[in-house]
């Protein structure tokens, strides 16, 4: 078998299933048209596969639906039971582990109060912030401050401050 026949055979089933790219489909078609051996191989494949007998189709038996919905009802019942088991477990915990439950409940209540307190006080400013806020009207006069000659001599003031600091040492 030559190389192009080998390549053709490797793609013959995919060619039959039309699962190759348009380019490859054309190449195989051209090869089959020119090569009697591959053409024969393909026609055998085509004849046998196109005549694969249908598998006997079956219908669900008479009690198929009934059996299935019974299974579904059983699933639902189990789920319901599990839900009640959850509630029952909590109730029995309360009954038999009363001190533990009371302690846990107490901790929960404390935590709730603490959280509530924290949220309330979070919004209030501390004294320093409040002082800053009260001074905010300074900003209304910001242009006046900027024009004051104190700022023009700001560098000089810093140098003099440094002198004073050195003197005091």
């Amino acid at each position: 078998m030559n190389k192009s026949c080998k390549k053709c055979r490797a793609d013959l089933v995919a060619y039959y299933d039309r699962e190759l790219s348009a380019k490859r489909m054309r190449e195989i078609a051209d090869h089959i048209a020119a090569c009697p051996t591959c053409a024969d191989e393909f026609s055998v494949l085509q004849e046998t596969l196109s005549a694969v007998p249908a598998f006997p189709e079956i219908q669900p038996s008479a009690d198929y639906d009934r059996t299935f919905w019974e299974k579904i009802r059983a699933v639902r019942a189990t789920r319901e039971q599990h839900r009640w088991w959850g509630v029952r477990a909590v109730l029995s915990l309360i009954r038999f582990q009363r001190p533990v439950f009371i302690a846990a409940a107490g901790v929960c209540v404390c935590l709730c109060f603490a959280a509530l307190f924290a949220v309330r006080h979070q919004r209030q400013l501390d004294p320093e912030e409040r002082a800053v806020a009260q001074q905010l009207d300074l900003f209304a006069h910001y242009d006046i401050i900027r024009q004051s000659d104190a700022l023009e001599h700001f560098e000089l003031i810093r140098v003099l401050d440094a002198f004073v600091e050195d003197d005091t040492k």
């Binding site: 089933v13 995919a14 055998v44 494949l45 005549a51």
Partner: peptide
């Protein structure tokens, strides 16, 4: 899948013949 189908269909073809 291409490789699986290739081998299976060739086997099926041979078996039917």
């Amino acid at each position: 899948v291409k490789s699986i189908i290739h081998r299976s269909k060739l086997a099926l073809r041979d078996l039917l013949r």
